[in-house]
């Protein structure tokens, strides 16, 4: 289809402001970071930066904390995503069998954590995990388990404690999206499965899950990228400690930049973070756009 010139000008005029904002606040900074990651400089001292070539990138692979944070970020992403998908899909299936009104009411209740600022989620869970008066410890004490669990203050349990808080906040997102996905499966499909004598699990694995495959892919993409970029909830709960046991890549880059004043190194870390993210999720993005079209 060819356009009259006047029309294509109008289209460009409509699209341009939005593109300009994204270019100005996202693309230009990315390009700038790419250049400045080759320099050594502190915040506000970019003009007196020293050119160091690729040394900031090489440093990453010799930095134990940095490599550790890559591992922690991967563990966090896989663990959080698995738990959230499992619980979210399970609850969505459970809700789909209920009368519409009841399921709508429950969904409204379940989606509350989704709307709470991550910094407040951090506040809430720090309160719950408090070793003396926190609810978690009061319940553990009832079972005599209070010494078995270190909560946020021990390296062995801090990451797990953060994952629990993250599951609390973001499982509702998966639940909501999967619920809308389930609503698109035609009723006749279930009826014919029933007629063929297929049980619950068989119907689930052979029919339901494949039919909402596109939606599962989509939530995996959205939640997976969010989890890999995790910052807020860790910042609010532990700040990366104790003993760097909850140091995610984003937290480490932030700390290097604004607390160690190594802006060049921080940019190198954050760009490597993005690179890993793209390598991990680009195939999913391509697959989901492909599925969108077909």
């Amino acid at each position: 289809m060819t356009l009259k010139p006047a029309r294509s000008y109008l289209a460009g005029f409509l699209v341009l402001p939005a593109v300009a904002v994204v270019v100005l606040a996202m693309i230009v900074p990315l390009g700038y970071a790419l250049v400045m990651s080759l320099f050594d400089f502190g915040p506000g001292q970019e003009s007196s930066g020293v050119f160091v070539g690729l040394r900031n990138y090489v440093a990453f692979f010799h930095d134990r904390v940095a490599l550790g944070s890559l591992g922690i970020t991967l563990i966090f992403t896989v663990a959080a995503l698995t738990l959230e998908l499992g619980i979210g899909i399970g609850m969505a299936v459970l809700l789909s069998g209920l009368p519409a009104r009841l399921s709508k009411l429950l969904r409204a209740i379940y989606s509350m954590p989704l709307l709470v600022s991550p910094i407040i989620v951090g506040l809430i869970w720090r309160y719950l995990y408090d070793p003396t008066f926190g609810l978690v410890y009061q319940w553990l004490r009832a079972f005599g388990l209070e010494h078995r669990f270190g909560g946020l203050s021990e390296p062995g349990s801090a990451l797990f404690s953060i994952i629990v808080a993250d599951v609390w906040q973001t499982t509702p997102f998966i639940l909501l999206v999967i619920t809308s996905g389930l609503a698109t499966v035609p009723h006749e499909v279930y009826e014919s499965a029933k007629m063929d004598g297929a049980g619950f699990w068989r119907t689930m694995i052979r029919i339901t899950l494949p039919m909402i495959g596109r939606v599962i892919l989509l939530v995996t993409l959205i939640r997976g990228t969010d989890a890999f970029r995790v910052f807020d909830i860790i910042y609010a709960l532990t700040g990366g400690g104790p003993a760097n046991s909850t140091m995610s890549l984003s937290i480490y880059a932030f700390k290097q930049g604004f607390q160690q004043y190594e802006m060049g190194y921080a940019m190198a870390i954050s760009l490597l973070t993005m690179l890993v993210l793209v390598i991990l999720f680009a195939p999913l993005v391509r697959k989901s756009t492909y599925m969108e079209r077909s």
């Binding site: 356009l3 294509s8 289209a11 699209v15 593109v19 994204v22 606040a25 996202m26 230009v28 900074p29 990315l30 700038y32 970071a33 400045m36 915040p43 506000g44 970019e46 993409l221 959205i222 990228t225 890999f228 970029r229 910052f231 890549l249 984003s250 880059a253 932030f254 930049g257 802006m263 921080a266 940019m267 954050s270 760009l271 973070t273 993005m274 993210l277 793209v278 999720f281 680009a282 993005v285 756009t289």
Partner: peptide, 29 residues
Amino acid sequence: IRSAGLLTNFFMLGKLVPAVTMLLPLFVM
């Protein structure tokens, strides 16, 4: 417009940029 699909994908890339990656240079600028 022909390139509409491409532009939509360009917008989708926003999901792949960590906030900290954007923040560090934005702060300097």
